[in-house]
Design a protein around this nucleic acid. Structure first.
Lengths: 210, 210
DNA sequence: GCTATTAGTGAATATTGATTCATTCTTTTG
DNA sequence: CAAAAGAATGAATCAATATTCACTAATAGC
């Protein structure tokens, strides 16, 4: 008997794994899953390509884990926004704004999480993400219906419309960010854009002119 | 001198080209551009892979042409719906319904045209498509603002919200059709779905409860 | 210091799918 | 029919990446 994994090594391995995950996140945030090459990730993390495979079963698994981590963060933010006090409409507005502002800050990542075509294992993660998200908005809409500030409607379908309107406006192929990323940096425009979207969404939900 | 292209040959070549185009369309409608392999297209069209390259410069060129043909059809439909008589709101409703129903009939193609990541040459076609589309809806919204049936707003941004809400609800990753395609065949549900979406969109646009 | 065990390496391999091109088949015309 | 030109073919090639694995380096316990 000569070697047994020690605490020091466990930490070092965990650190390496973490570093690989972070660099993968960076790559995806830059150009989506499609453009995140194993070689590039290895370069960034300063390890050999083979090392990545000592920490993750496959590229797909690595991506799935990154996806899960990223979405958990997003879900947490929206959950928090919806957990504040105020009417359902007010809380929804906060949540939508949170969602929109985060998407604007990282449009590529937002697109990757929402719409980029991905491998089956990652798609599975997206399913969970989707359910969590749809569930959150749906729940808030239901509360609004009970409170009376939102008219009766199919909460599930409406929540999909919300997500679609925001996603398309901010990160979709028809969005301004795709063609003139430079211009999208102008925060003033962005505020205006977010307001327009929120206005559209809340009117769509409530049918009340704002 | 011995051979000169004759009318008969020109027609035959045109027919082959057309057949390749149609089979490509079929492939894309089935699984998007990503899954449309040259070999599969060649099989369907009953030609050798090399033959495709006698008719099209490259896969990218072939796809770009298919994209153009497909979008021209879509644009024509929406243009027609918007050219009918009635108030701007009524005409927009017709156009949105047209758009939604066509997307439901061919969700994969709709997704490919709207959101699937594509090569640069195809993306260029999408730019034109997008301009045409955005232009049409925008124009109708502007007319509505002038008529007074739609409150003043950024017509461009609102038209993007419209497209997003529909696209996400019908063909997006969060849509119901992605997971239970079987259930999506139930036309009754679809009618209900389209109505919900249209309601959301028109309320978003007008702020008037329907 | 020695040895067993695990971690790390990165060039070589495997895979997937577009594209090419030497060859064969067709058509045209004298 | 023969010669010239073009069209069609599809196996071979190329390209781009993910993955493997034989080898080297580092660590743990004696």
């Amino acid at each position: 008997m000569a070697y047994r994994e020690t605490e020091k090594m466990r930490l070092r391995k965990a650190a390496a794994r973490q570093r690989i995950a972070e660099c993968t996140y960076k790559c995806v945030a830059e150009g989506g899953f499609r453009n995140a090459r194993i070689t590039r990730i290895a370069q960034l993390a300063d390890v050999a390509t083979g090392t990545i495979y000592r920490h993750f079963e496959s590229k797909e698994d690595l991506f799935a884990e990154i996806f899960r981590q990223a979405t958990q963060r997003e879900i947490a933010k929206v959950t928090k926004a919806l957990a504040t006090s105020g009417s359902a409409t007010e809380r929804l507005e906060k949540a939508l704004r949170q969602f929109a502002e985060r998407a604007l800050k990282g449009p590529v990542m937002a697109w990757s999480l929402i719409a980029e075509p991905v491998d089956p294992k990652v798609e599975e993660e997206r399913l969970a993400y989707r359910k969590a998200y749809a569930g959150l908005f749906e729940q808030a809409i239901r509360e609004g219906i009970e409170e009376g500030c939102i008219p009766d409607q199919n909460a599930r379908q409406s929540s999909t419309c919300l997500v679609g309107a925001i996603a398309e406006s901010l990160v979709g192929p028809l969005s301004p960010t795709q063609t003139n990323l430079a211009a999208a940096k102008e925060t003033e425009n962005n505020d205006q854009l977010v307001n327009t979207i929120i206005c559209f969404c809340l009117q769509g939900l409530t049918g009340i002119r704002r």
